[in-house]
Design a protein around this nucleic acid. Structure first.
Length: 217
DNA sequence: CACCAGGGTGGTT
DNA sequence: AACCACCATGGT
């Protein structure tokens, strides 16, 4: 398989540095990771703004908030009942562990296990939180990366998640570049590496081998 | 109208 | 382990 470093270089050349290091603190990033599930960042960001406007984007206030108030703020981000309940559990989790500083002091392994035990936090969200909120070297394996890998390799069956993780880890090991790589994969996936049959003219198509007669050119 | 958007959970086979 | 329905709104 093509080295991940080559793909990284091609994506960077095609799209430029994304600089996705979100600000406004770890807890907001954790909440954002839950809110953005199966929706757009635009919708999630609006929900974040509404929560912040009511001072609900802090562990203490959110854990004590009325669920209906949270639902009102985040309705536009979809699955609002489910996500409101999960946000409450996330806030409670942080409070019960003595605040963010206590969590930040934990080793990555332990922190990941704690995150995975949370309602609504699976592998992708846990790694996104580790990377973006806690600045740990985590590989985010999402649908865009799977699609990109499948187009790169035309493998049948598609590469498994652990293989994708290893593929990235062997090329990139620091959080800043893992962050940038993930951002580039997402941007590329949104702009051109679209679901079939609307796969666009790909900037890194020289690296792709789709195996189909129409696009093998 | 059909499909997609930075998933995860619980139940079924 | 693989597969499925479900959660729900907003944009194209």
């Amino acid at each position: 398989m093509i080295p991940c470093a080559d793909v990284y270089a091609a994506l960077l050349s095609a799209h430029g540095a994304q600089r996705w290091w979100p600000g406004d603190g770890p807890f907001e990033i954790m909440a954002g990771a839950l809110l953005v599930q199966r929706t757009t960042w635009r919708s999630a960001d609006i929900a974040i703004g509404r929560l912040k406007g009511r001072d609900l984007l802090e562990p203490e206030s959110l854990s004590a908030a009325d669920s209906a108030d949270v639902e009102t703020c985040i309705r536009g981000a979809g699955f609002f009942r489910t996500k409101a309940a999960r946000l409450g559990k996330l806030a409670r989790f942080v409070v019960d562990h003595g605040g963010l500083a206590q969590l930040e002091a934990k080793p990555t392994r332990e922190l990941r296990a704690l995150l995975l035990a949370l309602d609504g936090v699976g592998p992708e969200t846990a790694d996104a939180i580790l990377l973006y909120a806690f600045n740990r070297p985590a590989v985010v394996v999402d649908a865009y990366l799977r699609r990109l890998a499948q187009r790169l390799t035309a493998a049948e069956p598609a590469p498994a998640d652990p293989d994708l993780r290893d593929w990235v880890e062997t090329a990139i090991d620091d959080p800043i570049h893992l962050n940038e790589f993930h951002a580039l994969v997402v941007v590329h996936g949104q702009r051109t590496c679209r679901p079939e049959p609307r796969c666009g003219s790909c900037e890194i198509r020289t690296l792709c081998r789709t195996g189909t007669a129409a696009s093998a050119g």
